[in-house]
Design a protein around this nucleic acid. Sequence first.
RNA 1: GCCCUGGUGGUGGAAUUGGUAGACACGCAGGACUUAAAAUCCUGUGGCCUCACGGCCGUGCGGGUUCAAGUCCCGCCUGGGGCACCA
Length: 905
Amino acid sequence: MLICHYKMQYDFKKIELKWQKHWDESKLYSQYDYTKPKFYALDMFPYPSGAGLHVGHPLGYIASDIVSRYKRLKGFNVLHPIGFDAFGLPAEQYAIQTGQHPEITTENNINNYKKQLKRIGFSFDWERELRTTEPKYYKWTQWIFSLLFDAWYNPKNNKAENIKTLLEKFATEGFEGKLWEHYTEQEKGRILQNFRLAYQKETYVNWCEELGTVLANDEVKDGLSERGGHPVIQKKMKQWFLRITPYADRLLDDLNKINWSNSIKEIQKNWIGKSVGAEIYFNIQEFDNYRLTVFSTRPDTIYGVSFIVLSPEHDLAKKITQQPYKESVNAYIKSAQTKNERQRQQVKEVSGVFTGSHALHPLNGNALPIYLSEYVLNSYGTGAIMAVPAHDERDHAFAKKFNIKIIQVIESDENINTQEKPISTKKGHLINSENFDGLDVQIGSEKILTKLVNEAKAKRKINYKLRDTGFSRQRYWGEPFPIIHENSLPKLVKDLPVKLPQVSNFTPTGDGQSPLSSNKKWVHTEKGLRETDTMPGYAGSSWYFLRFMDPKNEKNFAGKKAIRYWQEVDLYIGGAEHATGHLLYARFWTKFLFDLQYIPFDEPFKKLINQGMIQGESKLLNAGNRLLHIPLEYTNNLGQLTADNFIKLQKADKRFENILWENLQPKNNIVELKNQTEKMSKSKFNVVNPDDICEQYGADTLRLYEMFLGPIQDSKPWNTQGIEGVHRFLNKLWNLVFNEQTVLIQDVEPAKDSLKTLHKTIKKITNDIENFSFNTAISAFMIALNELSQQQCRSKNIIEPFIILLAPFAPHISEEIWHKLGNTESIHKSKWPTFDTSYLVENSKKYPISINGKVRTTLEFALELDQKEIENLVFQNKIVKKWLEGKKVRKFIFVPNKIINIVLG
RNA sequence: GCCCUGGUGGUGGAAUUGGUAGACACGCAGGACUUAAAAUCCUGUGGCCUCACGGCCGUGCGGGUUCAAGUCCCGCCUGGGGCACCA
């Protein structure tokens, strides 16, 4: 007879698919109980690209899923939604490349993402799924735009208000000394554009020829587009802007009330770039009718001013130039104009030109030559500076080149000759500053400024680097503006949504017009011409976290009740690369909606975690002058390139066509490859697909491994070999519960040491989740399981709570074991165990005994012993005696529960 | 140049308030089971010296504080990120 030894194996695939289907069908994660306290855990919603997910993407989702599941078990009503940010450049570029309509490629990409995400077993409420590209969603994006258009920032109340209050003000006070009713409709429209929070203005913008669109400042890195790395130039165009600048101070100050990483806060601080100083006025010797205004943060250095510099674009540049200097000044202005900002920055040598005119020093009346130079930016401050060469590096270089006086006004500890090198410190005291001599710099600065302000020669002023943000794109794939231009004045369209129309060709036109303009029927309306630009990618993502609270609401962007219940996001997880884009705009829109009293909170994300990058291991071939990425499938198991594979590679990849095998210096027909750890990307052939991992090891293993790799915030390399460890852990757990045929777990009284293991693990895991220390939690699970195995623990009272602890991390295997132990409800609806300190109490402690700071042995003492008794016991110890031989004991240090240290003379 | 972060075995990484550095894994080496392999289990694994007992050195480098420093202070070196003629 054939005996069939049926082994109950850990069949992860079967288990995982079964429970995923079950959870889906029972809508387990779409159930809410509003009597419980709320917890809102959100991931930065994904941008569905054509490449699909790699193992780096789910890292943050796994973390937020663990927290969400944990919070549910702790009795919270958890909102954990997901959606897709699908408008914008990448989707459109992909569509253009593949020649398909972006609507189709987006739909395909989203479906692929959903399939991948679902396989990992996240507890997302898919009922609340949203897409920024759906008209029923972007209707409300357009609605918020309408609010911005119809709002102004009232500096008196320090908040945004409906434009009505501005009109009331103008009606009673007039505008610029003229009654409001005396302005024409056109004039009124133009004036209001200077106040609206969404407005059009003609100005220099970041134009990317290759992408055929303008870009926001945060979408440009080092003069190149963030997407694709194409050159970006400054072009004068009429564009939509959002007036974020009045919010600068609040965006800065409120960083103090949110729990974000230091580095992100710093990045936003720098981006906002607040500097406190003054505008100081300089009369001009040669012109009575003009006055110069400079911005300075260092009024203390005013007696050190020896010249004035204007930017080449400064309004007065040409007006104040004296006849003999006109030619050289014009030439200089012209040459500056031909360069874009990037080219200007690259030129490090000092350049400039004298105007022939002089400014008068406001305090001592000295005549100061006025120059033009590129190092002064027209877009910052007033586009003019007072130059203090003794205390500013750039001014110093300029003075040297043009042979201008260098006047030292600060004396510090640094022994520097200011004729050679500037002193940039703010510590020291003033000299050469008339009756301010001898004062400390800080105090002197304030006194000088007070004097200037009192004499109406200066005004206190705060400047920001933050600029109003460009809000229009000349592209097809974005939200249309709800705007029709009537008599060349923009007017809101009331009937929303304004649906994105069909066009015959959605590729960029390249002439600064959006592809929408080709649909003449759509553009021409009875009232006037429609706005044909579209909104940028960040429009939809600036408020989506609000929509998730009430995603199906047709009357409002979200219902009042839902907003009041869910409030701000408690935990937000996503990449740090959005520091100056999405994260700033979302804060801005939140504050705006708060001002208009649509929401009762003014920060969107209470706690933010930036997950690190998971890097891939690339293989690089040194082909003479360049390094080429080699797809992994062409390397052998030692990571080398063989001659056979090289031939195949040459057929498959054009990059290798003209490379000769001999030139690669093969040894025994093998070429060594260089290893490199870098960002995962398709083009680097180092991408690991989570689908493959789920197939081979299962979703639970993938989840555990991603968490086990290291701290969530850190970047770390992926190494598929290491996954065996966590996979073995799950197998061990399985084998603890099941043997060949049956469940081994019984309802028996647990052993004392098992209780201790359990309770210290409850404590540790709870702590670790609260601190987002998931990697140490996994190792605690491993330690616990090793101990329980050692103890041969089979007690249900131990195993059940243990797998509840594990459920947030490995939801499938926990659910399976839970049911096999006889439970019928889902484990994810059970209760988080609490730990009982009484099981952790020890009655003795093992003390390290160190002599002169070096640990020599350990001794165990009962806790009730006092220091004297312990001291006696320590000195009786053989090893201790050996070390004490011939030495004198200086000191005996006993730190209860920590250590014992003997200091010898 | 300025700001923010890191630097710990062959690798990923542990280490409450300063209190046994290297937990937990991977990898590697040896062993058990097996005809053999896979799987599993056990043992070892920072470096150097020693048959061993044991000792010396060791958290980027150099100083310091302390009974005691990966942890605190001062000065450097270096990886990553951000800002950058911003007055």
